[in-house]
Simulated scan of single mutants.
Amino acid sequence: MRYPLSLRFGPMFAAEIRKRRVAHVRGYPQWRWHLDEVFVKVNGKLCYLWRAVDHEGEIPEAVVTAGRDKAAALTLLKRIMKRYGQPRKIVTDGLRAYSAAMKEIGAADRHEVGGRLNNRAENSHRPFRRRERAMQRFRRMKTLQKFSSVHAQVHNYFNQERHLVTRQVYKQRRTAALAEWRALAG
Rank of each mutant, 00 (worst) to 15 (best):
G44A: 04
M135A: 10
A108H: 05
A52M: 15
M135T: 01
K45I: 02
K45V: 04
Y48I: 02
P87T: 00
R51W: 04
E56R: 14
R133T: 04
V113R: 15
T65R: 15
K70Y: 06
R79A: 11
L49W: 03
A121N: 05
R126N: 01
K41R: 14
M135V: 01
V38A: 13
C47E: 10
A101S: 02
A72P: 09
A52V: 09
I59K: 15
P60V: 00
E122I: 02
K142N: 06
A72Q: 12
G67N: 15
A100P: 05
I59M: 15
G115V: 04
R129L: 08
G57N: 08
V40K: 10
I80Y: 08
E112H: 07
R83C: 02
L35Q: 08
R32D: 05
R137G: 14
G94A: 05
D93C: 05
Q86V: 02
M135F: 07
E56Q: 13
L77M: 12
A101E: 01
H125G: 06
Q86M: 06
R79C: 03
P127V: 01
I90V: 10
W31P: 15
L95Q: 05
P60R: 09
D36G: 13
V38K: 13
M141T: 13
A107R: 15
M141H: 14
R130M: 06
D93P: 07
V25I: 11
N43L: 07
R129Q: 04
S99H: 13
R120V: 05
E56S: 10
R88D: 13
L117I: 00
D93M: 06
E61F: 07
F138T: 00
